[in-house]
Simulated scan of single mutants.
Amino acid sequence: MLLALLGPALLVVGFAQRSGGGAGGRGGFRTPSVPRVNPSPAPSFPLPTPSRPYSTPPVYPVYPAPPVYVTPGIGSGGIGMASIITILVLGLIAYSVMRGLSSAARGGGGLLGAGAPEAEVARLRLALLYSPELQRALRRLAEEADTETPQGLADLVDNAAALLLREQSSWKFGSYENWRGSLEQAEGQFDRWMTEDRSSYVETYRKFEGKVETHEAEYTPRLEPDKRYLLVSLLLAHRGPLPEVPKPLRAAGARQALLALSSSTPLTTLAAYLSWTPEVEGEALNEQDLLTGWPGLELL
């Protein structure tokens, strides 16, 4: 009975974190402020003084005004039939416009297309067979990435997706999850998932919004011969919905997820983060490490 109760706790204790690295930023959530420029005062010039002598304007004869004829309308108000028809037509147009706006606000489509999510946050995790070349490629990709602009973050997602697609024969486990909601809440959801990824390893390298931190000197590698997996996580916050990804994931779904993430552009990329563990060359994970540390993974 005691062992049954302590079993899950022993598994968690038995999972020892390895090194990890990451790169990304939230550049798309930041709107650059335009510096205010105060216009210089316009130059003032003296007005020219008339040089010709003042002359008396000519006097013209005054004639009586022509008579005004009023067309009788309905009753004694004097409003013509054409004016009444014009008012009725304008009222019908205003009523139609207000009905369309009201329908859109209720989420029925309408003129504004309301009801569509403003942002989507998606995360793909892939467990691949360990390769020191892949470790080095991920580190190089992180070092060369521009993590301060939406353009650089979109390029980071594209390059990471291309790198992982080339390694499709090494995919073994994976998971895909997405969240849709308002633009105001999307940054918080992105931060939660990014923090969750970072907490699953000992951070030895990180490049975030242009700032680089390395802690390899303080870390002691765990080089074990029976380890054979490398886990990569690709996280994206996207303006508007992303293409749908089928579930269960399988290899075809993982490929579709990578293509969906890479469909982001500098205009739609709000934030992105690429992370992987282990990061120190020679370290790897075994299957028990994967299933204990990331229980949501499924066999591809």
Rank of each mutant, 00 (worst) to 15 (best):
L153G: 05
N178C: 09
S40D: 14
R222C: 09
P39Q: 02
D289L: 05
V232G: 01
D289F: 04
L285E: 06
L5T: 07
E244L: 13
V68F: 15
S275C: 04
P266H: 01
P66M: 06
Y130C: 01
E118C: 02
L235E: 02
P278N: 06
A271L: 11
G115L: 08
T277F: 14
E133A: 12
P41R: 00
R166F: 08
K227V: 01
P117G: 01
P246N: 07
P64E: 09
L88P: 14
N38T: 14
A114H: 13
E279D: 12
P72E: 14
I87K: 09
G107K: 07
L267H: 14
I93Q: 09
D197T: 01
G14C: 06
F173Q: 05
P32C: 04
P35V: 03
H238Y: 09
P246D: 07
L259H: 07
L259R: 04
E148I: 13
G293S: 01
S275G: 09
S102V: 12
P35N: 01
I79C: 06
A105G: 04
A284C: 01
Y205N: 10
G113Q: 12
L128G: 00
A272C: 04
V12A: 10
L126E: 06
L183C: 01
K227C: 02
S96R: 15
L88E: 13
T277I: 10
P8Y: 02
L90D: 04
E281K: 02
S169T: 12
Y60D: 14
V13M: 09
G210S: 04
E209L: 05
G152V: 09
G109P: 12
D158L: 15
R36P: 03
A260Y: 04
V37R: 07
E244Y: 11
G27H: 08
P67H: 01
L112R: 10
R106E: 15
E244M: 14
G75I: 11
P67D: 12
S83T: 03
E184I: 09
R106V: 08
Y201P: 03
S233P: 05
G7P: 05
A119D: 11
L165Q: 05
E148M: 09
G174Y: 08
S263F: 14
Q151D: 07
W294M: 12
K227I: 00
G20K: 03
L92R: 04
M98C: 11
G113R: 08
E209Q: 14
F190C: 06
P150F: 04
A162H: 09
Y63E: 13
V212A: 03
P248H: 00
R123T: 03
A116T: 11
P48W: 00
A160P: 10
E209S: 15
G7E: 14
P225C: 00
S263W: 13
A104S: 15
G73D: 14
P41S: 04
A254R: 02
Y273N: 01
S19Q: 06
S131F: 10
W294P: 11
L5A: 14
P35M: 04
G77C: 12
E143G: 08
A160N: 05
P58L: 11
L164F: 07
M194F: 12
Y95Q: 10
L299P: 02
G27D: 08
L300P: 08
T292K: 00
P248R: 06
W179K: 06
P35A: 01
T56W: 15
P43E: 08
R26Q: 12
Y130R: 05
P72H: 10
L223P: 12
P225Y: 10
